[in-house]
Nucleic acid binder design. Structure first.
Lengths: 146, 146
DNA sequence: TTTATTACCTATTGACATAGTAGGCAAAAG
DNA sequence: CTTTTGCCTACTATGTCAATAGGTAATAAA
């Protein structure tokens, strides 16, 4: 499950990309109002975004936050991983739990690995600019059924 | 994140499919020992599996659990959904939260929908028999990179 | 009819994560 | 030196996860 942290972070990125490019600093107050998210809670989120190398912050009058790269140079995967940690589907695959004694005989591990790769490719293949207002003739389409 | 409930359920299914087909009842004690999972905890899990229509249970001597269909008639998706509920990536898409006031203008919702479809197709496209011991010349391969 | 074996049921727990809130300090610009 | 902004620490309510504990009910064999 993607939590509010990841989803809100994405909305902050989109807000900055759409409304202001990466020219000037935007006060968090404005973003919070536009996005209808508690400013106090967003503070926590943007703090992680700054330390994760997604944004730059500036204090004082005229301060706020801005993107530190061009919008097309971000992908969704890295944004989500800054907020959520590694996008791993099962604990068997996330970091320190790599020492499962059953890993050589486990019948389900290959599937989790395949799944993880699919998820990784999906989110790292999506650029921030893919989420901005529609341009006609875009490539990606929803996969199918359900 | 797929929790232990989903993962353990899958291992129970595989255990039953591999060791006994759907001929006879297998005591939970045996499964728990083979899989090295607490029997007490498994009780909770198989209970849900019975009420979810995955297994049949029988009390008393000679009792235990067995599959109620042939192994090739299960897919991984339905097994996981019995244990984890709907495999939804974000709360915006899971059931009652479908009433988000931003849903018509949300820039991220299409991506979550696309993602959900991909996940759904992945797990519903995997049969239980795809997880059993290897047969050479099988189709599916891990997707790529990382 | 007793006994062993099995499933089935309710309740409780500790640890942790989520989604915030509260209040103040620090920096920068006018 | 005051206003605007970010930055920092702490706290909390609620819920989920991963179990554990202890009992009752059903069934087959002795």
């Amino acid at each position: 499950m993607i939590t509010t942290k990841g989803r809100y972070a994405l909305r902050v990125m989109i807000d900055l990309a759409e409304n202001h490019g990466n020219e000037s600093y935007v006060p968090l107050k404005d973003i919070a109002e536009r996005q209808e998210i508690s400013k106090k809670y967003l503070e926590i989120i943007v703090k992680d975004m700054v330390s994760g190398g997604l944004l730059i912050g500036a204090s004082g009058k005229g301060g706020g936050y801005k993107l530190c790269r061009k919008p097309e140079e971000y992908n969704v995967g890295e944004i989500l991983e800054v907020m959520e940690g590694k996008l791993s589907s099962v604990s068997c695959l996330s970091g320190d739990f790599n020492d499962c004694p059953r890993k050589n005989s486990c019948h389900t591990l290959p599937m989790w690995t395949e799944y993880d790769n699919m998820v990784h490719d999906f989110f790292y293949g999506k650029k921030l600019t893919d989420l901005l207002s529609k341009k006609k003739g875009s490539a990606r389409k929803a996969s199918s059924s359900k």
